[in-house]
Design a protein around this nucleic acid. Sequence first.
RNA 1: GUCCCUAUCGUCUAGCUUGGUCUAGGACACCAGAUUUUCAUUCUGGCGACACGAGUUCAAAUCUCGUUAGGGACGCCA
Length: 475
Amino acid sequence: MIRVRFAPSPTGYLHLGNLRTALFNYLYARRHGGRFILRIEDTDPERSKPEYEKALMADLRWMGLMWDEGPETGGAYGPYRQSEKLEVYRGFAEELVRKGHAYYCYVTAEETEEMKRAAKLEHRPLRFDNRGRHFSADEIVRRKALGIRPTVRFLIKEPKLVMNDMIRGTVQFNLDDMVGDFILLKADGTPTFHLAVCVDDGLMKITHVIRGEDHLPNTPKHLMLLEALGFPAPAYGHLPLIHGPNGEPLSKRLESISIRGFREKGYPSEALANYMALLGWSPGDNRELFSLRELEGIFDLDRVGKSPSCYDPHKLDWVSGEHLRRLSDDEFKTKALAYLKAYHPQPWDDDLLAQAVLILKDKISRFEELPGHLAFLSDDFASEHPGALASDTSREIFRAALEVLPLLDAKAPGLYDVFLNHLKPKVRAKGKDLFMPIRLALTGCEHGPELKRLFPVLGIERLRKRFEKALGQGI
RNA sequence: GUCCCUAUCGUCUAGCUUGGUCUAGGACACCAGAUUUUCAUUCUGGCGACACGAGUUCAAAUCUCGUUAGGGACGCCA
């Protein structure tokens, strides 16, 4: 049984990089009938915040990436919050010391810092020189007396040099230049990331670790640790990183683009998942538009690329627009109204709003654009071209329109066509000269929804008011 | 500085494993035209790439080496 995990630390909101890792893990599990596990890596009390954990889970749920095991869901391998099992890690660290895989190290943080500074100056690798391995019994006593509390460091015996990555193939490391004995337990007794990850991956029976490429250099450490711990090594796959729109480093700016932000802007979650899947993965044929379900059926790691990619908001908008247009009218109405209610409350009743929103369906790529387009519902608008209303031909149209309106049946189909049939004989204008004044009188804007669809939404009464207003303004 | 990873249109990518079917395919963006009595949608067309240099070979986007460029890691953060 394939078991994968998404293991964020709750130190901020879910962002693009995070989300892609979560998505690929989720899809991989679904594709292979495995389990998707959520694990909260909150061993750093300084930076971890419960509200971020809540937000993380809310965002994951919104995305539809529901976990099979994890906080709030439970599972046979809990707890799924690392802060709740600090003792467990300590136990494993002590066991490693007993078995000679690790040792208490009395080198202080200041000394390590100094070591690094010196190494940098001399252009040597910036690694720990393992000096703590060789302290004499006297030295240790002396340091204890000074109040120095030890860390537990992993004792590297045979540096592991080669690994097989599911995405990158064989990767070799020159370990002597890379890592020294690394810390398992900090001086305060809490575990480091390395210990916690390996213990949990082992205990939770994780079979495949899919994570960002930034973790690639950590993998040799984890492989050695896992072996010492007596756990079978999972398969590793390291995803290429995502860059910003201009190819800039990623980091700060990208992290500031939170999933929350996309939700607030009104992107459908499936569109976001669809777009993210395309960043680094492709189905092999020319298809690009997928529902989450479809992705679950075709995604696999063997079609994930090795090179980093840039986040392109334009393409996201296109994908999003396509998703919106594929929605049935009812689905679109429901989602649009829910979005407006949550983020941009409108003064109109749901019935009117539902009709109005529907005629905008093919004009938007995300719900955030709705409020601006909805302005036509208001009787109280300023015209873009007040002058255009004043001409004789315009005034003639409005007067004729007001004569025609009472003859119409609002509920009869083809309201606009009937209106035009009555209107045309009464006015000289035709073509653009006819419909543009009408459009301006009704919406104040040169661009907007089709008049044909606009008429039934506005209804006779609103139409009358607006033509009267236009006539009044023209004086 | 040291180690590691990566390299096809501006962007996302297919092709690379098993060299020839590649005068390199698709999509976004952009430009032009058509449809729509506006905008959008839709449709058609255009622009546009194998980072560079060697090597192997009858033949290289595809294999090898080097160069360059970008990214990542080097925490008692995760």
